Computed example of a mutant assay.
Amino acid sequence: MTLGQHLRVFICVVVMGCIVGFVLNGKEIETESPYIDYVKAQQWPFNEELLIGEVFDGHYELTYWEYFTARNGQHVVQFTGKYDEQQDIYQFVVEEDYTGFTIGAVKQNNILLPPDQKWNFVKTLTTKKASKSGEFLAGI
């Protein structure tokens, strides 16, 4: 086989792998959901005067919220935010009856943070960039 034929076979295998992966791991993602509204309206764990939505909107330049149901049935709200060259992802696991939530996985530039680093990183958002008005957020 020629190099061109090898390349075509490789591209077909990659495309088919992506299609099979999407079908097997597919989940319905929503960008508007009562679960997203619930998480945004909750108090920031390290400063009860702030709401989660306010902290994220005040710190990140580009933000994206989405909701999905995990394979195990958990209701997950995922926030993705970009600040300078860094992209952060937070997952919140919300109780079905909106009685509580936990901060699940946190990724920084696609690297999953271990629990101790996760909490230290989340704490720093309270003291980093202020708000869009330029006022610094209250520290811990």
Rank of each mutant, 00 (worst) to 15 (best):
V93Q: 07
W119I: 08
K123D: 10
T124L: 05
Q108F: 06
F101Y: 15
T124S: 14
L113H: 02
Q91T: 08
T99V: 00
T124G: 07
V93D: 00
L113S: 01
Q117N: 09
N109D: 15
F101G: 00
V94I: 14
V93I: 15
L125S: 11
P115E: 12
P114V: 06
I103F: 06
Y90G: 02
Q117V: 11
E96D: 13
V93F: 14
L125K: 07
D116L: 12
K107L: 11
N120S: 15
N109A: 08
I103M: 08
P115R: 08
W119V: 07
K123I: 08
F121S: 01
N109M: 06
G104E: 07
W119M: 04
V94Q: 05
G104V: 02
P114I: 02
V106K: 04
V106P: 01
T99Y: 00
V106A: 02
K118P: 03
T102N: 08
T99E: 06
A105G: 08
Y98H: 10
Y98I: 00
F92Y: 15
K107W: 02
F101K: 02
I103K: 06
E95L: 15
V94N: 05
D97F: 07
P114W: 02
V94A: 11
A105Q: 15
L113W: 06
F101H: 07
K107T: 02
T102L: 10
V93P: 00
V122I: 14
K118D: 05
G100E: 03
D97R: 09
I89G: 01
P115F: 13
T102H: 09
P115W: 11
D116R: 10
F92N: 06
I111A: 11
D97C: 08
N109W: 03
T124C: 01
T99H: 09
V94S: 08
F92V: 12
G100H: 04
I111F: 13
D97H: 10
W119Q: 08
N110D: 15
L125R: 08
T124R: 04
F121M: 01
N109G: 03
E96S: 14
I111C: 05
E96T: 05
E96I: 02
T124Q: 11
F92W: 15
V94R: 02
I111K: 12
L125I: 13
K118H: 12
L113D: 03
P115G: 08
I103Y: 01
N120R: 14
V122R: 00
K107V: 02
T99R: 08
T99P: 03
Y98M: 10
K118A: 09
K123E: 09
A105L: 15
D116P: 04
D116T: 11
L125T: 12
E95Q: 14
E95V: 10
Y90T: 03
